[in-house]
Amino acid sequence: MALRHRIIGKAARVYWRLFRPRTLTVRAIVWNGSGQVLLVRHTYGNLWHLPGGSAKKGESFEVALRRELEEEIDLCELTVERVVGIYHSTGEYKDDHIVIFAVRTRQAVRIADPNEVREIGWFSPDALPPDISPATNRRLGNYRRGEFALEPW
């Protein structure tokens, strides 16, 4: 199944290179009651990331966030704390706008879609994994500093 996601990802990058679409994406900094942050490792990559994904046409950012968290990690019970920032990325040949939310939960999570997410983990902010994506590490820094960021990804 991971092969299917890798093939879809490669096809998407070809499409993005040709058409340069504008995309809207949501991600979440998910905190538990123990002060740990949740990170995911997707089947199509090796680095740890914040959970989330693309907003569908007609969806608000909050609706997209809740849908993506339920689809990826079966997270339904959450409280949105704040928007951490709005970022812009032109990587992967698309014009992507990413909204990062900080959320809190006391709910246990699990991998809801093993075709997309291969691993989840709760980490202390001062003991993040060495293979965390650089952008994820920067977003966590924005959060820890209490910043509202409007910047490139």
Results as ranks from 00 to 15, higher is better:
Pro21His: 00
Arg20Gly: 08
Leu65Asn: 00
Ile7Cys: 07
Glu81Met: 03
Arg41Pro: 00
Ala12Asp: 09
Ala11Glu: 15
Lys57Ala: 09
Glu77Arg: 15
Tyr44Gln: 11
Gly52Cys: 01
Gly85Asn: 02
Gly9Phe: 11
Pro51Trp: 02
Val26Thr: 12
Cys76Ala: 12
Val37Ile: 10
Glu77Phe: 12
His88Asp: 00
Gly91Asp: 09
Arg4Pro: 09
Glu62Arg: 01
Glu81Pro: 06
Gly45Tyr: 09
Ile98Met: 11
Arg20Met: 01
Glu72Ala: 13
His88Val: 03
Val80Asp: 08
Asp74Ile: 03
Glu70Leu: 13
Ser34Ala: 09
Arg20Trp: 10
Ser54Met: 08
Gly35Tyr: 02
Ile8Val: 15
Gly53Thr: 06
Ile98Asp: 02
Trp48Gln: 06
Lys94Asn: 08
Lys10Gly: 09
Trp16Lys: 15
Arg67Leu: 04
Val37Lys: 00
Leu38Met: 08
Thr23Tyr: 10
Arg4Trp: 11
Gly35Lys: 03
Gly58Met: 01
Leu69Gln: 12
Lys57Arg: 14
Asp74Trp: 09
Gly53Ala: 04
Ala11Arg: 09
Leu3Tyr: 12
Val37Pro: 07
Ser89Ala: 08
Phe19Glu: 07
Val83Gly: 02
Leu47Phe: 11
Ala11Asp: 15
Thr23His: 06
Val37His: 04
Arg82Leu: 06
His97Gln: 14
Trp16Thr: 10
Ser89Trp: 03
Lys56Arg: 13
Gly53Cys: 01
Gly9Cys: 10
Leu78His: 06
Gly35Asp: 02
Arg27His: 13
Leu47Asn: 00
Ile7Ser: 01
Leu18Glu: 08
Ile86Phe: 02
Lys94Tyr: 03
Ala64Met: 01
Lys10Asn: 11
Glu62Ile: 10
Ala28Gln: 05
Val80Leu: 08
